[in-house]
Structures are given as C-alpha cells and as structure tokens.
C-alpha cells in the first residue's frame, strides 16, 4: 500500500497545471499502461549566467503513484540548474515518498523521463548541445512510443 507521503502528494499535488509558454515540454508514459505525464519547464539565466529551472508544472493521467511522483519531480526540479536536474534519479523520488509499492516503481521512472524530455526539448529548441546520455534516453523513449503506437494500431484493427 501507499505511504502517507505518497497519499499526501496525491491528495494535494504540487505544481499541477500547464505553463502557457514553456521553454520545454516533455511527455512520458502511454495509454496502454495507463499513465501519461506531461511536464512543462521554464528556464532562466541567473546572475552568474547559469540556466536555472524557474518554474515547473505537470499534467498527469494515471494512478496515485503517477500523480504523486509527478508532484515530487516538480518540487525537485524547481530551482535547479539544467545539469543538476539531469542528475535526478528515481531513487530521489522514491526516497521522498518513503518508498513505493514495487509494482509502482516504474511511475518514478516516468517522472524522470518526462523531465528529461522537457530538458531535451529545451536544449534542442535553443540549438544547444545535448549531453549524450540524454540523447540516448530520448531515442529510447521515442522508440518505445513507436512500439506502443504500433500495438495500439493492431489492437484497434483487431476490434
């Protein structure tokens, strides 16, 4: 079952909604599994010229774990530099939630993916170099999306 921390984030999620003019937007998850996460980021340079994520919003369709991990990733990413945000991993999320049921751990990965995708979009949109890790992750997510779309197509045909 869910920890009180997970229930609290699910019950009153932080930073939900959309940014009207986001600097980056990332999407992760798919309808077959029942989780879809959209993450929006706003990036500004601080006095030292570092790029900081100044605002994060999310919209998520999914179970309590998916909504709670979305809420946590927005808290974690806010105020971080791009480099710092890219270092966030699923353990950071799971720790804040004081654990997730084993079958729900993938939801925390979804949040990491959505943030990574938003940063990827920001970097490519601003013609900036993309770290190779992030590029690989992006390719992997794109490939999964293709597989899911093909599966959905087949399912629709079979109905």
């Amino acid at each position: 079952m869910y920890s009180p921390q997970t229930i609290a984030h699910f019950r009153t999620p932080h930073n939900y909604g959309e940014l009207k003019h986001p600097d980056g937007r990332g999407e992760a998850g798919n309808i077959i599994c029942g989780d879809i996460m959209s993450l929006y980021i706003e990036v500004k340079k601080n006095k030292k010229g570092k790029e900081i994520i100044t605002a994060v919003k999310f919209k998520t369709y999914g179970c309590a774990a998916a909504i709670a991990t979305s809420s946590v990733i927005t808290d974690l990413a806010k105020g971080k530099t791009i480099e710092e945000a890219l270092l966030l991993n699923k353990k950071d999320i799971v720790d804040i939630l004081h654990g997730l049921p084993p079958i729900k751990i993938h939801c925390s990965l979804l949040a990491i993916d959505a943030l990574g995708e938003a940063i990827y979009q920001y970097l490519t949109g601003h013609k900036r170099p993309v770290p190779s890790d992030l590029a690989t992750r992006h390719q992997h997510i794109e490939k999964e999306k293709q597989i899911i779309e093909e599966r959905l197509k087949k399912l629709k045909e079979s109905l």
């Binding site: 229930i7 699910f10 019950r11 029942g34 989780d35 369709y61 999914g62 179970c63 309590a64 998916a66 909504i67």
Partner: peptide
C-alpha cells in the same frame, strides 16, 4: 474518460 480508476477509488475513499 480522461480519469484513471485507481486515482478515482482513492479520491472517493478520502
């Protein structure tokens, strides 16, 4: 539509 069942069950439980 656009709502996931487990979330709904928990919201109702609240």
């Amino acid at each position: 539509s656009a709502v996931e069942g487990e979330s709904l069950v928990l919201e109702l439980d609240f």
